[in-house]
């Protein structure tokens, strides 16, 4: 699907809320073919919400702004239409779908893309073959990828399974929501290498992450810092290095009462959460995020 043409996902002034709480407060981002953008931010900054809203997950309300893919209004499309248009979301917590294999699901998607209403036996077999080949590339067995989607898989296996599906579907722009969480270093390397190869072939990537570790492999062209639902800083890869050093403290407001800068989750270290607000007190806590996972 990538072809040689350039595709662009453009997010402008995106505002969204969930459960009556404003989470995204005017996000601007542009991701084009072959480019890797990293979005980093502390807990509750709106990272996962951004991924979900762009893909159209139910439960969020878009209150302003726009998202377009090659000029097409993404927000007016159903989630599956967004996927058919070339978007992909690798989920932070891939959902278990009992009784439905990746081959069944992806064959439906690929058949539709090819203009067929119902996948043929050949398309199903071809999808199965593609899945097995891509599974091998990230160290998953054929048996595992033939299972019902994400059922009885470890956290790391689910993430590799997301990478496998990404590689089979070959979208134009992929949003990776904490693709690194739950992956050991070998699996991370395998997944990142596969994604990097896809970007060289034209895939545009929006990688959402807490940690710089994954960026050593994904090698972003641009790094963005999101705080309180806004992009507060953007730069080259060197920005990730700065975050590794200083954490998000420079971007966070001072605690009015205590008067100490708050640092949530020093990057790459789980020990640095010195005075992080508890989720209950954090007005921007992302209700969709798994706190355990966010804390890494």
């Amino acid at each position: 699907m990538n072809g040689n043409s350039t595709h662009t996902l453009r997010i402008e002034g995106l505002c969204a809320s969930a459960g009556g709480q404003d989470i995204l407060q005017g996000v601007n981002l542009e991701v084009s073919s072959g480019r890797v953008h990293a979005v980093m931010g502390p807990n509750g900054s709106g990272k996962s919400t951004l991924a979900h809203v762009v893909m159209g997950r139910p439960g969020y309300e878009v209150t302003g702004g726009s998202v377009t893919l090659d000029g097409v209004d993404v927000l007016s499309l159903a989630p599956w239409e967004r996927a058919q248009a070339g978007l992909f979301l690798a989920m932070q917590h891939p959902t278990e779908v009992p009784g439905v294999s990746a081959a069944q699901a992806l064959a439906e998607a690929l058949a539709l893309r090819a203009g067929d209403d119902i996948p043929s036996v050949e398309q199903l077999e071809r999808t199965r073959g593609l899945l097995e080949a891509e599974a091998a590339a990230v160290g998953l067995t054929a048996e595992l990828v033939a299972r019902p989607l994400n059922v009885d898989m470890s956290g790391g296996e689910k993430k590799r399974n997301e990478t496998v599906q990404l590689a089979v579907l070959q979208p134009r722009i992929a949003i990776l929501d904490e693709i690194d969480s739950g992956l050991d270093i070998d699996a991370l390397r395998a997944c990142a290498n596969r994604i990097e190869a896809l970007t060289e072939a034209g895939l545009g990537v929006l990688a959402i992450t807490h940690f710089t570790r994954v960026l050593e492999y994904l090698r972003p062209d641009e790094v963005h810092v999101i705080v309180d639902g806004r992009i507060v800083d953007s730069g080259g890869p060197e920005l990730a290095d700065a975050l590794e050093e200083d954490g998000y403290a420079p971007y966070l407001p001072e605690e009015p009462d205590v008067g100490v800068a708050v640092s949530i989750g020093g990057i790459g270290s789980s020990l640095a959460a010195e005075a992080g607000p508890s989720p209950a007190e954090d007005p921007f806590a992302d209700p969709w995020a798994d706190p355990l996972d966010e804390l890494g």
Binding site: G56, P79, W80, L89, T95, V97, L106
Partner: peptide, 16 residues
Amino acid sequence: DQRFYLESRGVPTDVA
């Protein structure tokens, strides 16, 4: 969530 997961792969709502 199961429906959305399949939709996010490009599977139409009713098929999902």
